[in-house]
Design a protein around this nucleic acid. Structure first.
Length: 112
DNA sequence: GTGCTGACACAGG
DNA sequence: ACCTGTGCCAGCA
């Protein structure tokens, strides 16, 4: 196969799949990085995380979360606003001013 | 080639 | 509940 010219797709196919997986998560629900990696059957949580770090702004990034339910460092405020607006299940901290965490048991999406 | 880093996950203590 | 170490895989200096 000869000269295949320039970039037919700007994003690597894998990144495209990760973004699509994030895109289909319904409001009020979340998937973990590991969940997405498993759904794709390729790569791992860290690879999903890297794609989200690079291109996550284009999709509902707040619906892709860590398995421990902790909010994304540096984006807690923005994420929390979304969760409250979407009714995503949260677990409030014991102390006032304490940052809530996601209640994964209820928030995790079992779609597909 | 080697080694460090990272929007992770899990087991221990 | 917290922190630490280990496994993991890809990118980059």
């Amino acid at each position: 196969m000869g000269a295949m010219a320039g970039p037919t797709h700007s994003l690597p196919e894998y990144a495209d799949r990760v973004l699509t997986a994030a895109e289909v998560i319904p409001p009020g629900r979340v998937l973990t990085y590991g969940d997405i990696a498993r759904r794709l059957g390729e790569g791992g949580p860290r690879q999903v995380g890297r794609v989200m770090a690079l291109y996550g702004a284009a999709v509902p990034w707040w619906r892709v979360v860590r398995a421990d339910g902790r909010l994304l460092p540096g984006h807690e405020r923005r994420a929390l606003e979304r969760y409250r607006a979407e009714g995503t299940p949260l677990r409030d901290g014991t102390a006032p001013g304490d940052m809530p965490r996601l209640d994964l048991r209820r928030a995790r999406w079992d779609g597909g």
